[in-house]
Design a protein around this nucleic acid. Structure first.
Lengths: 181, 181
DNA sequence: GCTACCTATGCAACTTGTTGCACTGCACCC
DNA sequence: GGGTGCAGTGCAACAAGTTGCATAGGTAGC
């Protein structure tokens, strides 16, 4: 499982509470590894037991106490071990492709609507990524180390969303053309 | 869940046994919806209970009996309903991106090896898809209906793998450049 | 005669992921 | 004073996916 490792990477960048981690997963790590707060809390608990992270409670005024986690030595070792170990490419599960493949068995118009909706969702995500690229990485050739790695992962997101938008457009054009005949 | 729907689509194209379905998932449907034989057997059982598919045993000589499933009316209705209903874009879980983001915490050389390995895996898949495109869809502009939809899904696979190969190349170039400094 | 692989189905146990809910307390707006 | 939303942690139940194993006969090669 890689959720633990995603958490280790994130905590290494900056220690934080489960709640904070959940937010990071919403708006950054989550771009390439989705997780809900439930999963995160449960996994953090297990990671403490494994000795991969340490935890101390922090009192706050005007707010509930929080538990701040940080990476322990064993966690860093585990992360290094995992980074060097070969992994399988992701198992693909692409809803929209299943729907398209079954298109002839349903309402064609409804399906083109669905494809168009996905096209727009991906275009939106792409815009978000491009805005981050422009703002946070104005001069990519100057990057190195951690910042470079963050940039490269963002580039993966950009390429993936671009490919999806273009594909949706191809599908829409072909299905509309087919409709006309 | 969409495994049921992927099975319905596949069974609608051609009725078959759990075993045959598992093979189709290995080499065709599985390109965009992965499933093991365990999942398929279990899901088929549930689908019979729901009345979405019907099942009759077929004796074979020299081989174990098999259970051939075919889509029932209720299954077709369910599929049509699902096709028209909006779905979320997939939650992304991309191991390799997590590894790259954590690259600075491990052995950089081992990681470039891992990226190169994934690059080759994706290039291989791309070759498979391109071969299918060339063989099964030599004249895309003439396609319509079900054949067109199959082609469009394949196009999605091709675009995705192309994007991944190019991204891996970008990552490798940047990391090697960074190493040299 | 032994090994290995193919066809064919399935149980059991386990790990992951999702969903709905519960509790606390502050801040802000109308 | 009532609703909404944020910060914060967590349980319980369920759904989905994975892994290891069991069974059983057939075919093919050495």
């Amino acid at each position: 499982m890689a959720l633990e490792h995603a958490i280790l990477v994130s905590l290494d960048e900056r220690s934080g509470s489960g709640y904070e981690l959940a937010q990071r997963f919403e708006k950054s790590i989550g771009f390439f590894w989705a997780a809900t707060h439930q999963q995160i809390y449960r996994t953090l608990k297990r990671m403490v037991e494994l000795g991969w992270v340490s935890c101390h409670e922090v009192a706050q005024d005007g707010r509930p106490d929080k538990k701040v986690y940080e990476v322990a030595e064993a966690g860093r070792e585990e992360l290094a071990r995992w980074l060097a170990s070969p992994g399988e490419p992701e198992t693909i599960r692409h809803d929209l492709s299943v729907k398209i493949r079954g298109a002839s068995l349903g309402d064609a118009k409804a399906l083109t609507g669905e494809v168009a909706r996905h096209r727009d969702l991906h275009a939106e995500r792409l815009d978000v990524y491009l805005a981050i690229e422009k703002k946070d990485f104005p001069d990519p050739s100057a990057l190195s180390g951690r910042r470079l790695h963050q940039y490269l992962v963002l580039r993966g997101g950009i390429r993936a969303e671009q490919a999806l938008v273009e594909w949706c457009d191809e599908v829409l054009a072909a299905m509309r053309e087919d409709d006309r005949r």
